[in-house]
Design a protein around this nucleic acid. Structure first.
Lengths: 122, 122
DNA sequence: TTGACACATGCCGATGGCGGAATATATTGG
DNA sequence: CCAATATATTCCGCCATCGGCATGTGTCAA
């Protein structure tokens, strides 16, 4: 068998800067979860979760680049807030599978709900 | 300033085998999208998308490990099918943000729908 | 059994991304 | 201006992952 010439890695889909990758990281999800109650300063996030400050800043940068958070300066603090509308791509993508989801396994779920309704009526 | 001792990389959240990471990869999303119409053999996927066969097999392995696809042998072919129920974690996580999503930007959406309804009535 | 087909797996090089440490930048108070 | 605080950025090492290539494994057909 002839050894084929090595071609080399093809230009890979440049990662970060798409929402799917942004939320793939657990720590970034934790940060988003922390912001769900309202805007927070970086230091508050650092305290709430226990991550280093540079780590938080860098993750916030990634989240910012995909639009999932916005920043507002107040004195020497930066208040970050959620921009949940930018989860749309993710939401829409998952929604495509809900039909299939309902068609397959969640028949059982419907069945259970039906039983429940009948139980309530008696 | 004293040089701090280097501690080394902390045990990082072991990646693959969570759904978020599985769908973070564009090619894996394409494979899932290809399976949305029903089960397909590996070769069919290789043809539909244009990826190498080992690439497809490896991505299918990752998707399989997180339960997003199941495999069925038919002769010498392996038919893969979607298991959309395993998108639940993703779905539930995104759903947490829908309230915030509606509360913020989609007031405009509601407003547009209201206008539309009024337009239909006249 | 042999050969062809369908797929999985192993190995490799390269790249990206993550976290830690250190430093830079900006803002406030005295 | 100076020190302290709050955050961003830079540099670096390591590891995971990705894709290409080659090969292994199982199945069918003749």
């Amino acid at each position: 068998m002839p050894m084929a010439e090595y071609i080399g890695p093809v230009a890979r889909a440049s990662t970060t800067s798409d929402v799917f990758n942004a939320v793939a990281d657990m720590h970034r999800r934790e940060i988003l979860d922390a912001l769900i109650t309202g805007e927070k300063a970086v230091g508050a996030i650092v305290n709430d979760l226990s991550m280093s400050q540079p780590q938080v800043s860098k993750h916030l940068r990634v989240l910012s680049e995909v639009g999932l958070v916005k920043c507002r300066a107040e004195g020497r603090r930066r208040l970050y807030r959620l921009e949940p509308a930018h989860l749309r791509p993710l939401h829409d993508w998952v929604a495509k599978y809900e039909q299939a989801m309902n068609d397959r396994l969640d028949r059982m779920d419907d069945y259970l709900k039906e039983l429940q309704r009948q139980g309530e009526r008696q």
